[in-house]
Write a protein that binds this DNA or RNA. Structure first.
Length: 192
DNA sequence: AGCACGATGCTCT
DNA sequence: GAGCATCGTGCTT
């Protein structure tokens, strides 16, 4: 088993982390079994000034984790039924995170497929359900294997295979935040 | 292939 | 009380 990405990986500008998480391997231990997928889509949410970022409301019970040290999981509940997974980035008191939006399953594929009733893992709420990630994982240290949730190095994705564009689902977020090109995708035809 | 809509409950105003 | 970093269904092209 590879070592989880170290805290120094997350303690960098959020756009850098979001870009470099493409191709990395997200791992969750569920009932003693490794469930894992290659990250193929991410989005950056950066600080209180970013009106799309939850930290725009300042430090609250929900956002506190983003104000903590980098390399921790920020898992939140939305739309009354979905859990979304983020990796906290940048130094303490600098609230920012990378949303994991899609994975390509590589380990525990049978279990993942069953948990999804045969459907895909190309969505932020789809992959959390697939890997068994929910509020119980909020705040876990992604740099400590004992947490059961971490990210391992993968194959680097070349620039020509990456598509960059605006973040999605920000319907009532004002400009310029709504259109900032802070979404990173491994081009669909490059996803093995 | 694409759009409209309902589900369902937490967070912040 | 409004809005939400979404998803699946069902209907229209």
């Amino acid at each position: 088993m590879l070592q989880p990405l170290r805290r120094s990986f997350y303690n960098r500008p959020t756009l850098t982390v979001a870009r470099e998480l493409l191709g990395a391997r997200l791992v969750h231990m569920l009932n003693g079994v490794r469930l894992a997928g290659i990250i193929v889509e991410t989005e950056a949410y950066i600080g209180e000034a970013d009106l799309a970022c939850h930290a725009k409301a300042g430090r609250t019970a929900r956002t506190a984790i983003m104000y903590g040290p980098p390399g921790h999981a920020y898992v939140y509940f939305t739309y009354g039924m979905h859990w979304l997974l983020n990796a906290v980035t940048e130094t303490e008191n600098s609230p920012a995170a990378v949303l994991i939006r899609a994975i390509q399953p590589v380990e525990g594929i049978e279990i993942i497929s069953a948990r999804r009733h045969g459907r895909g893992t190309n969505g932020p709420a789809k992959l959390t359900l697939a890997l068994g990630i929910d509020g119980a994982q909020n705040g876990l240290d992604l740099c400590d294997p004992a947490s059961g949730l971490w990210i391992e190095p993968g194959h680097p994705i070349p620039e020509k295979s990456v598509t960059i564009g605006p973040r999605v689902g920000l319907n009532s977020v004002p400009e310029p935040w709504k259109s900032m090109p802070w979404r990173f995708i491994v081009s669909p035809n490059q996803q093995a």
